[in-house]
């Protein structure tokens, strides 16, 4: 009997450690393999946020994935690549941060489709963990 309890205990500890280890190293959620909540254009998305930020945030909060079509206005690179999509709003861009392992060879002026997790509105609309839509 004692042996049985001991065995069960060992299994429980190993399982707990396994779950803990998995949680600790859990991969970041990316937009790459998720179905988009909304498919839109850079202009439309900017318009939604600039006309009524509260309403737009209500719609897109909760880490919703948005798929956006637009023209590349600028590209910048630090530890991650950021792509700015132009909009007709002279103040605004869609600011997209690519996931680490996303290959990207586009250039300014290219039309692309990109999907990412909505982080909110801060003059620009920011999307994180973005992936290119092929």
């Amino acid at each position: 009997m004692k042996k049985k309890i001991f065995t069960v205990l060992i299994i429980a500890i190993v399982a707990a450690a396994g779950i803990g280890y998995y949680m600790w190293n859990k991969p970041k959620r990316t937009a790459a393999d998720e179905k988009p909540f909304a498919i839109t254009t850079a202009d439309e998305l900017m318009n939604e946020f600039s006309s009524d930020e509260t309403k737009a945030w209500e719609k897109y909060k909760g880490d919703k994935v948005i798929q956006v079509k637009g023209k590349i206005g600028d590209i910048s690179q630090d530890s991650l690549t950021t792509i700015l999509l132009e909009t007709q709003d002279i103040m605004g861009v869609i600011n997209c941060t690519l996931i680490k392992d996303q290959n990207f060879s586009g250039k300014i002026g290219d039309s692309i489709e990109i999907k990412g997790i909505c982080a909110g509105y801060n003059l620009d609309v920011q999307l994180t963990q973005c992936a290119l839509v092929q």
């Binding site: 949680m23 600790w24 190293n25 859990k26 991969p27 970041k28 959620r29 880490d63 991650l80 941060t97 997790i117 909505c118 982080a119 909110g120 509105y121 801060n122 920011q126 994180t128």
Partner: peptide, 16 residues
């Protein structure tokens, strides 16, 4: 100065 909370990047997904 203004920034978005969800735009903070972390090493671990769990931290974020």
């Amino acid at each position: 100065i203004s920034g978005l909370i969800k735009a903070f990047e972390f090493e671990k997904a769990l931290m974020q």
